[in-house]
Simulated assay, not measured.
Amino acid sequence: MKPYQTVPICDRGEPLVPIPWDRFALVQPHPYQVLGAPYGDQSPYSLRAGVLAALIEAQHSLQGQRPGWRLQVFDAFRPLAVQRFMVEHTFLEQVQARGWQAEALTAAQRDAVMAEVVQFWAVPSDDPATPPPHSTGAAVDITLVTAADDPVDMGSPIDEVSPRSHPNHFAAAATARAQAVHAHRTLLNQVMESAGFRRHPNEWWHFSLGDQLWAWQRRQETGSDKFLAHYGRASVDLWVQ
């Protein structure tokens, strides 16, 4: 269990609503659907209504500083089955990257790989008290694109399992490119925080508002335990097409 999973959930019951295609850049085709992730008839480009409203506010803030730039949504809502699929997929990728065979792993090797994976991926818990952040509809993976829809250099791809994914990885680097990358990550964080989001400690691209991780971070910032999670695991009856 991660520390943030001890935060109580008091779900507001807000619906999951579609992220509007005409307001944000959405990665197409969706990267996890291409891999065969089992979404069924649920769209990955959905968020709780209050979270989407805040995302719109964040984009307004971005465009006030960089006219024409947009937030590009890589991923948002994940059914629990998709979270499980992606954790298993990432685990196997990391095994193969080490030149190991999945069927021949020792217990120590398995533990070592999984310890690295869970730095970036939440365990797909079936317990409603400990939902993965993306399964609440309150977390979103995003990057930036210019007014010409060109990707902004963020230093590493989304979902990369490496130290480069840590938000401040490039902060102390002296090269012009590294400093530009850090400036882009800082800009993204600033506009998201201005709308109430908080960034994942290990991932420059992951932001949440109202889930357990967000509440835990707000508690750490303020020293107050008054912050609760507003969103638990999203159920089918919250879905708005």
Rank of each mutant, 00 (worst) to 15 (best):
R164Q: 14
V17C: 12
I56T: 15
Q220F: 09
F91P: 11
M114K: 12
P131L: 03
A115C: 07
A97H: 14
D141V: 00
S165I: 00
A76D: 01
R110Y: 13
E193S: 12
G50F: 06
I142D: 10
Q190M: 15
V82D: 02
Q59L: 12
E221L: 13
L209A: 01
A115W: 00
F24W: 10
F207E: 01
S224Q: 13
A171I: 14
G210S: 07
D150H: 14
W21H: 08
F74S: 01
Q28F: 12
A107I: 11
F120Y: 15
A174M: 13
Q179H: 13
P3H: 01
D126E: 10
H230M: 04
A115L: 05
P38E: 11
V123M: 15
Q28H: 14
R199K: 09
W121S: 12
R177D: 15
L47P: 06
A172F: 11
D22P: 09
V51N: 10
V140C: 09
V161T: 10
P163E: 02
V140M: 08
Q72M: 10
F85Q: 05
S235D: 07
R164F: 00
L213G: 07
S61P: 02
E14I: 00
P38R: 01
T90F: 00
L26S: 08
T186K: 05
A174E: 15
R66S: 03
W205D: 08
A54S: 11
F24I: 02
D237G: 05
T136V: 04
H166E: 12
H60Q: 11
A178L: 15
A173S: 12
D153P: 12
M114F: 06
P20E: 06
A229D: 05
Q241W: 03
V161Y: 02
A81C: 09
A102F: 04
Y231F: 07
A102R: 03
R198G: 04
D149Y: 15
T146H: 12
P67H: 03
I9T: 03
A37C: 04
H230V: 02
G155P: 06
A174H: 09
T146I: 01
F120N: 01
T130W: 01
P133H: 11
F77V: 07
F227R: 04
L16F: 11
A171C: 05
G210H: 04
L71I: 15
V123I: 15
Q96S: 05
